[in-house]
Design a protein around this nucleic acid. Structure first.
Length: 422
RNA sequence: GUGGGCGUAGCUCAACGGCAGAGCGCUUCCCUGUGGAGGAAGAUGUUGAGGGUUCGAAACCCUUCGCCCACCCCA
């Protein structure tokens, strides 16, 4: 047999994995909808130009799946949703009702080195509120994230949402006399604060061209967890988060920066507290110029994204996943022999007509084999329709979890089954 | 792109230069109208691939492919 391998970095969704994906989708939808967000989606394939217009061209060229289609156009499997969202908003900018609250859960592709929590093909939850810029709107979106975390069993002891504000940090950098040209380096430096040895970090800061005074000032800022009090935005944000009932998830952390691409205000990132995943579970922030590159007047918004891979790993690892049924049909209609095969089929049809999912063993086989099948599929009920039952107008209904069974008359058996599966 | 680890039965792994094995799973039977537990028997391999060293290679060496992990990066 020839083995044909899968493409590097993709996953195959066997029913078990599919159940997890659908579970995440359900929870994402529930959290989004509970705050009134509408579901949308963009194309999975876009022109490269849509992404090249943005600041991270280097990343786009290196880390996206890009190819020529048969017509010669260079297209890309979408690595993110925000540019598509921006274009969709811009196209109908005048006719939308603001604030726009939209969410999406779909596939994305990034040509990166696969490792724990990272694949080349993954699903991502994207959610944005557009056309408002109040700290209270920021709070709402963070509350959506917290609501989701809570709904999948990630309590505040298990997950934390770290919050910071870019405007606040900019002001602090200004006060230290760190020039705007250095901001990217500084942001990078801050990201490494926890990853690097303290002494190495000190040296690295100077290598990047900071003065000792600036470096020490920066350290002071990063260690100051009351810094938020200087920001009206954050003060209001935290007050709103309190009222929204999710304050227990929130921690101010001045070292949360989130790259430097388009965030301008509040930024946040959620981490699982045991640290078994060394990346964030979700993250996002406020941006001011969503439509800049796609032709539209500036619109402010706030959004975040969450990948399915890391979240799936954590939920599995922490034992937070519910047990997914192996099969949607919890009832097996056994087949007694060849002459009764179609009677069993008819019996199953009756069940389905009553809204109960049911399977029939699709060929004549020994009963033990059929029961073993039902058992392996973790089904709850087995029906036996043999010559005796047919003669008496009955069906044997067997409860597979305790082994009890009884012959039930035709007019009552559907209810008996229904009671057992619910 | 850089570094590390690992490829042996369907799965998890052992054997580390001397007959390729175990557990789980699978098949059959104990049991021709009833599953889970138990007992008995059985099947299953290009040891990722190619080359080399050796009397002898799953093991050692070279090449190659694949997977995992970390770094880089993370829209």
């Amino acid at each position: 047999m020839i083995k044909i391998k899968t493409v590097k970095g993709v996953r195959e969704f066997y029913p078990e994995q599919m159940a997890l994906r659908n579970y995440l989708y359900e929870k994402v939808r529930a959290a989004s909808q509970s705050f009134g967000y509408q579901e949308y989606d963009g194309p999975f394939i876009e022109t490269i130009d849509l992404y090249a217009a943005k600041s991270g061209e280097e990343l786009v060229k290196k880390q996206s799946f890009t190819f020529q289609d048969r017509g010669g156009e260079v297209v890309t499997l979408r690595p993110e949703l925000t540019p598509s969202l921006a274009r969709m908003i811009a196209a109908k900018q005048g006719e939308l009702t603001y604030p726009v609250r939209w969410w999406s859960f779909g596939p994305f592709w990034r040509y990166e080195q696969p490792q724990k929590g990272r694949t080349r093909e993954f699903f991502q939850w994207n959610i944005d509120i557009i056309g408002v810029s109040s700290p209270e709107a920021d709070a709402e979106l963070i509350a959506v994230a917290a609501t989701f975390l809570r709904s999948v069993g990630l309590s505040p002891e298990r997950a934390v949402i770290y919050v910071n504000n870019r405007r606040l940090m900019e002001a602090e950098f200004d006060a230290l006399g760190i020039l705007p040209a250095k901001r990217l380096d500084v942001s990078n430096l801050i990201d490494r604060r926890s990853k690097m040895e303290s002494q190495k970090w000190d040296e690295y800061a100077l290598e990047l061209g900071l003065t000792e005074t600036q470096r020490d000032g920066l350290k002071e800022i990063l260690g100051n967890f009351d810094l938020w009090k200087r920001s009206e935005e954050l003060t209001r944000l935290f007050a709103a988060l309190d009222v929204l009932g999710v304050k227990d998830y929130i921690k101010f952390d001045p070292s949360i920066m989130r790259g430097l691409l388009y965030y301008t205000g509040t930024v946040f990132e959620a981490f699982e507290t045991s640290g078994s995943l060394n990346r964030s579970l979700l993250g996002g922030g406020r941006y001011d110029n969503l439509l800049e590159d796609v032709g539209g007047s500036p619109l402010s918004g706030m959004g975040f994204a969450m990948g399915d891979v890391g979240m799936g790993i954590i939920l599995k690892e922490k034992g937070l996943l519910p047990e997914f049924p192996l099969t949607p049909a919890l009832v097996l209609v056994t087949v007694f022999d060849e002459t009764l095969l179609l009677k069993s089929y008819a019996l199953a049809s009756e069940l389905r007509k009553e809204g109960l999912n049911a399977m029939v063993y699709p060929e004549v086989a020994k009963l033990p084999k059929q029961f073993k099948f039902a058992d392996k599929m973790k089904m709850k009920v087995a029906l036996v329709l043999g010559p005796d039952e047919v003669a008496n107008g009955q069906v044997v209904v067997k409860n597979l979890s305790n082994g009890e069974q009884s012959a039930v008359a035709r007019d009552g058996w559907v209810d008996t089954v229904r009671k057992l599966v619910t």
